[in-house]
């Protein structure tokens, strides 16, 4: 498994789990997306788990990245799971309406 500079990803039971970096923005969202999607396209996983326990900052680029993964796995019968989000990150996710979607 490739280990990203900032994000760490592992697969277990059809779920690709990503440990997100301390700050998630446009500058690293694309790299994380590529890493996740590779596993989905290869058929190794259909669920995505985002682990926010290390993440202190996220903006709309993060929202777009999560929503994009949801759109990708939904037709496959997969789901998106969010864990460990607190403070500012949790607030932004709430405001974006993501919790209602996934």
């Amino acid at each position: 498994m490739n280990i990203l500079k900032e994000a760490n990803c592992q697969i277990e039971k059809e779920t690709v789990k990503i440990i997100l970096p301390e700050e998630l923005d446009h500058s690293n969202a694309i790299e994380i997306r590529t890493q996740i999607d590779k596993n989905i396209y290869l058929g190794l996983a259909k669920n995505v788990e985002f682990d926010f326990s290390k993440t202190k900052f996220m903006d709309s680029s993060g929202i777009g990245m999560i929503m994009g993964r949801y759109k990708l796995v939904k037709p496959l019968g997969g789901k998106v799971i969010l864990t460990g989000e607190t403070g500012n990150v949790e607030r932004i996710i709430k405001m974006s309406g993501l919790y209602k979607l996934i």
Binding site: A29, S60, S61, I63, G64, M67, G68, M95, S96
Partner: peptide, 8 residues
């Protein structure tokens, strides 16, 4: 198509 959410 670039996964922008229009929330900025």
């Amino acid at each position: 198509d670039e996964e922008r959410s229009g929330m900025g």
